[in-house]
Design a protein around this nucleic acid. Sequence first.
DNA 1: TTGTAAGCGTTATCAT
DNA 2: ATGATAACGCTTACAA
Lengths: 358, 358
Amino acid sequence: MAVTMHDVAQRAGVSIKTVSNVVNGYPYIRPATRERVEAAIAELGYRVNVSARNLRTRRTGLVTLAVPELSLPYFAQLADAVMSAADAAGWTVLIEQTSASRERETEVLSGRRRHLTDGLIFSPLALGPDDIDLFTVDFPLVVLGERVFGAPADHVTMNNVAAAKAATLHLASLGRRRIAVVGAHAGQEVGSAALRTEGYRQGLAEAGLPYDPALVVEAGPWHRSTGAEAMARLLDAGVEVDAVFALNDALALGALHALHAHRVDVPGEVALMGFDDVDDARFAVPALSSVDPGRDQIAQTAVDLVLQRIGASGDPAPFRRVVPDSRIVGRESTGEDGSVVGVQPGGTELVAADLTVA
Amino acid sequence: MAVTMHDVAQRAGVSIKTVSNVVNGYPYIRPATRERVEAAIAELGYRVNVSARNLRTRRTGLVTLAVPELSLPYFAQLADAVMSAADAAGWTVLIEQTSASRERETEVLSGRRRHLTDGLIFSPLALGPDDIDLFTVDFPLVVLGERVFGAPADHVTMNNVAAAKAATLHLASLGRRRIAVVGAHAGQEVGSAALRTEGYRQGLAEAGLPYDPALVVEAGPWHRSTGAEAMARLLDAGVEVDAVFALNDALALGALHALHAHRVDVPGEVALMGFDDVDDARFAVPALSSVDPGRDQIAQTAVDLVLQRIGASGDPAPFRRVVPDSRIVGRESTGEDGSVVGVQPGGTELVAADLTVA
DNA sequence: TTGTAAGCGTTATCAT
DNA sequence: ATGATAACGCTTACAA
């Protein structure tokens, strides 16, 4: 049988309330009493029963982070950052994988595990604008990503258009004139592909470069393999290219392989820029230039927001849309040395105050 | 105020016990009663209070998985597999990152979060044979990896020596005679590097090839970058090589880059074999041959074992050491087509029965 | 097949 | 500054 507060109280010759006070750092305790209690705790090897505390306080101290897949480096690193931020605030993160399936994503919002934690940080990939009703929930929720805008919840997202525009302009500023984009999703109007492609177009326009459809390469799922295929297609088609903007780093790494295989020198003949700035980018050969969308800031902000909602009692604070600063990191693949060559400022926007968080 | 079983009972005109029975799938309930209760649950939107249940049953339904870092692809994929296996059994996984620090690894075994879950699957990297006392614990524990052998706990590990030997023999069977190994840790006697290097030596011996220290390349942390450096060192030294066995896939991927950079054809001039069979291996160009250490089986077994211990009441079952089968997957980097070219059978071993799991 | 009632180990209210 | 005591919502003997 486990040691309880009662046992400790008896041993220390105090009431159970006093033990509780000591355990929870209540300040007004006579030092002598505190010491006696602490000694008893140590002798008996007492540990608070988390379930009992949770029942009583109606809090679990846990927050869920729901992402598509941990094996995608971006999400693994995001999870890492979220856990660190939560840790620092004394909270614990429960990770949930959705495999980007509608069913699992719906379950995250209303399924069996919903009640295991006090709040949810959710990066949807299957659910989209049409599912916005599902996001109208009565618990602290922070939405990540660019699938769902306008849900009655806090939202942390990226500077997609501005960052993609800046990346394109950066390639132009290096003297590149035939800038291809890899990873477009034709016909799609929502999500990262659409936004980043739009940024690419704006960048071209501002640089005074023509928009050439032959330079826009589709790549369905944003994986290394599809990036390699897309790049090979572009090269095999004989299209003239002197720079490639891949819409994420997996695509860029795949493209890098294809360029190598075709004996195209990077950055000599073709400069290459990715997006996400995952660890792999730094370690690639040549090191990959990329857009850092502010992953750590996203994680920190998401944790701050969800904890604020959890802590908020009653007052329906307006929902916030937060966009961290993003940075362009120039490495070998664009002939640079690894320094930040551009910053796109983010910002915070207040949205509404419809929902009372219970 | 949240809906409780009491409310449901009232609404359905039954006792709280009956509601509990329905919720927990107790079979002997009159269908009519069950329907009434289910209707009430639906109308009221009732959900069980997990904390109350946990307090009463002394179970949380959670299992901790402690790994060094999610951003290492092997561990991200292991976490994925463990979560899936636990999911299938109706359990939830709480992931903990240790950053391979002694402090964090010690905390996992005895820290604040220990009591959040019913059991622990632990892959230590900092703690080693000298810390075996820390592993003598009174809760269900399954140890993973090759840092700690002989702890009073179940242990799931890999076929390191046999698999490395088979990989080496396989390269020899392809006609390679100058087989280098990348990732050795000189002077270390415990851990994956030592075991796999030993397998390499055994493989050479059995193939009748001489052991040449010039072909044994050190690489401290097993990252892509160190693999690239190590490979470059080997090539720059002008050592004759026609095959490379990298002790994990990150090293192999790094080596692949270096080989490309040196314009060495893979597999034409040099055949390359990794270890771990992470997703990246399949997507590399050329696709990387690797040793699949049975990751999914490791995950499944670890979950089975920890759940068995959690379920076991009193009887001190003997500790088991389980080694899954491992497979050699031959892909383009050894001139093959992606099929399994060798299986090293694992096995189970019973160890002792000292510890009574509470 | 269903109901009654006693805790599980905390925290919180209210005294003192 | 500390003590009694009543919940928190559920499971589980035991009864009926």
